[in-house]
């Protein structure tokens, strides 16, 4: 049995941005180290980009992620070179410990939409994809990555989807909302068409993609402003006829659990008129849900209600007709 971890991460190193084109070099993200006795606590590193700091821990607009080598990140047990994939053998050794054969890697700092200049964002995404391609190429196929593309510049995004495909990407990364646009926005159709053509699935991942929503929360942001937008993405994909328009497109909802799926499906059924794939059995496409095994399960008794794999499988299978 080949075990594939559907969602792992890279902590982006500053070295990643050595891949930036020269004109963007002065605007590259820079790491600032903080004392551990500030409001940031053991999240004692931040990125400086466009004069703003990421993550933003205290106050409204909270986002929560860690930089490589921060006190908090080291508590997870992974070395810095494992976190950054600068030593891919360290990552593979970690996967061996967990009895995982392959892992699909997603970003960390780019789980937040905070870059204003689309051209800079596009350049950073190109650097990310180049770095990840090179790192994954050293792993004999055990590490794969989902590519970042600049949805806010659809022409550039299509170009980057094609480049990422050539570089060996396993999918296309997205957040549940793309700043102020839903995933069903026709502006993105050319991206979906290209992804379909190249057999690249759309991976809708947890993250702070909607700055207006992010701004609302000063606590519980991991759930309120990072997880919930994935359900928004699900809603707009399932109610827009998108999967009928792009029948070969595969869409996955990543790192958000699966307990919400029956609730969301029920609400979509109650609230929307066709076209929806939930009512149109002829519609194409397929969906997949990435979740986790309940950590509280003893392994011998009943699994906890947090995420029952059997139920998850049935829910997804019934919904998509293809991918459980």
């Amino acid at each position: 049995m080949r075990v594939i971890d559907a969602d792992g991460h890279v902590f982006e190193p500053e070295a990643m941005f050595a891949h930036l084109e020269e004109e963007f070099h002065p605007r590259r993200p820079v790491v600032l180290r903080l004392p551990t006795d500030t409001e940031y606590g053991d999240v004692n590193s931040v990125w400086l980009i466009e004069g703003k700091l990421f993550p933003k821990i205290p106050g409204s607009g909270q986002t929560v992620f860690f930089l490589p080598g921060s006190e908090r990140s080291l508590k997870g047990g992974a070395t810095v070179s494992d976190q950054t994939l600068e030593d891919v053998d360290a990552r593979l050794a970690g996967l061996d410990r967990f009895h995982i054969d392959e892992q699909v890697v997603f970003p960390t700092m780019f789980l937040v939409s905070g870059i204003e200049d689309v051209q800079l964002e596009s350049a950073l995404f190109r650097a990310y994809n180049t770095y990840m391609s090179e790192a994954c190429s050293r792993t004999r196929g055990r590490l794969k990555w989902a590519a970042l593309v600049p949805f806010r510049d659809p022409d550039a995004a299509v170009q980057e989807v094609r480049r990422a495909s050539d570089l060996g990407a396993a999918g296309i990364f997205s957040l549940g909302v793309l700043v102020d646009r839903q995933l069903s926005d026709p502006a993105f159709f050319s991206i979906y068409e290209t992804a379909s053509e190249l057999d690249l699935p759309l991976c809708v991942h947890l993250g702070w993609g909607a700055p207006a929503a992010t701004q609302l929360f000063s606590q519980y942001s991991f759930f309120c402003s990072a997880m919930i937008p994935v359900i928004w993405g699900f809603t707009f994909i399932m109610t827009s006829g998108l999967l009928g328009r792009f029948p070969k497109l595969r869409v996955g909802f990543i790192e958000t659990g699966a307990e919400w799926v029956p609730y969301a499906i029920n609400q979509v059924r109650r609230s929307y008129q066709p076209p929806t794939v939930l009512r149109d059995r002829e519609a194409g496409g397929s969906i997949a849900i990435s979740t986790g095994i309940p950590p509280s399960g003893s392994g011998k008794g009943e699994p906890s209600s947090r995420a029952r794999p059997k139920k998850t499988f049935r829910t997804c299978s019934a919904t998509s007709g293809k991918t459980g």
């Binding site: 075990v3 594939i4 971890d5 559907a6 969602d7 792992g8 991460h9 902590f11 929560v64 992620f65 860690f66 990140s73 508590k75 997870g76 047990g77 992974a78 494992d82 976190q83 970690g94 996967l95 410990r97 967990f98 009895h99 995982i100 892992q103 960390t108 947890l206 991991f222 996955g252 990543i254 790192e255 659990g257 997949a288 849900i289 990435s290 979740t291 986790g292 095994i293 309940p294 950590p295 399960g297 392994g299 011998k300 009943e302 699994p303 794999p309 059997k310």
Partner: peptide
């Protein structure tokens, strides 16, 4: 699909999910 979230170590993470699922007899 299942996932570890490694090496984030946040509330979504479960690095031992493979072993846990193997032990689930139901």
């Amino acid at each position: 699909m299942l996932s570890s979230d490694y090496p984030h170590g946040d509330p979504s993470s479960d690095e031992s999910y493979v072993d846990k699922l193997h032990m689930q007899q139901d």
